[in-house]
């Protein structure tokens, strides 16, 4: 574990430098991550105000806090790897990565974390600004706040391993746009990005329980909002660990098969 520390430090450095070079791109991704939750925040806030101040168990303020939290969690856990891989394989960058004596996922994780830290400088003020603008009030319980840290880290890793696995599909076909989009749509409905899951019909909620997506986004948001019981928290942590492990295994399998294919066919 600690053997990776100097490697990660090196990656951080270079990725930070790259990001300065591509500072525009950096801001653009960031803006995208702000717009979507903001859109749904506005819609649900409008609906809630129209309905006399609440929808289901969510008050107008709850909606505001929910989507701001969703913005943070989504930003904290998102990856761009599914778009990056096609480019990598097409441009032959992947061959270079293979030559390095370390699994390529590490440089991606380091890149991602580096980006997240850097963009905190924009995300932080944005969140505060939105909270002020929409007059959000949020009283977290101390224990859920503490639990949020491991939950977020697990969500991040889970998402990383799963999306990295999906990115590997690029070894078989470079035309992955439809798949990526399907993934986005599915997450939209089952992760709580579009609306809190409790506002969906029963069947969607049950399906969401069985899929990994709610544990990537909805669950961390609920924890941050303090909308969980200790029992929920434990179940959620268990589900996250399960999906993380599954993601890890899937990633290993797909990666090995992908490398084999890459070696056989090239790009």
């Amino acid at each position: 574990m600690f053997a990776y520390y100097p490697i990660y430090r090196g990656y951080f450095r270079t990725s930070l430098m790259l990001m300065f070079q591509y500072r525009i791109a950096m801001l653009i991704w960031l803006l995208g991550g702000i717009i979507e939750p903001l859109m749904y925040l506005v819609i649900w806030r409008t609906v809630s105000l129209q309905q006399g101040g609440s929808v289901g168990s969510y008050s107008t303020n709850d909606f505001v806090v929910y989507f701001i939290a969703m913005m943070m969690v989504s930003h904290g856990t998102f990856t761009w790897i599914m778009w990056e891989y096609v480019y990598r394989i097409r441009m032959g960058q992947f061959s270079v990565m293979l030559l390095k004596p370390i699994h390529p996922i590490h440089s991606d994780i380091a890149d991602n974390i580096g980006y997240k830290f850097l963009t905190l400088t924009v995300m932080g003020p944005t969140v505060l600004l939105l909270a002020w603008f929409f007059d959000a009030s949020w009283q977290p319980a101390f224990w859920t706040l503490a639990a949020f840290v491991p939950v977020l880290i697990l969500a991040f890793l889970m998402r990383f391993y799963w999306e990295w696995s999906l990115a590997m599909v690029a070894f078989w076909t470079l035309r992955i746009d439809a798949m990526n989009q399907a993934y986005i749509v599915v997450t939209l409905f089952f992760s709580g990005k579009l609306a809190p899951l409790t506002l969906f019909p029963e069947i969607v909620q049950r399906a969401a329980d069985l899929l990994p997506f709610r544990w990537m986004l909805y669950f961390p948001v609920e924890v941050l909002l303090g909308r969980v019981t200790p029992r929920d928290l434990l179940i959620g942590l268990g589900a996250q660990l399960f999906w993380l492990l599954a993601g890890y295994l899937v990633m290993q399998l797909i990666y090995r098969a992908g490398i084999k294919r890459y070696a056989a066919f090239g790009a």
Binding site: R13, L16, M17, F20, Q21, R23
Partner: peptide, 9 residues
């Protein structure tokens, strides 16, 4: 170097 990168901003 990183400092130089930031300065170039």
């Amino acid at each position: 170097g990183l400092i130089a990168a930031m300065r170039s901003l």
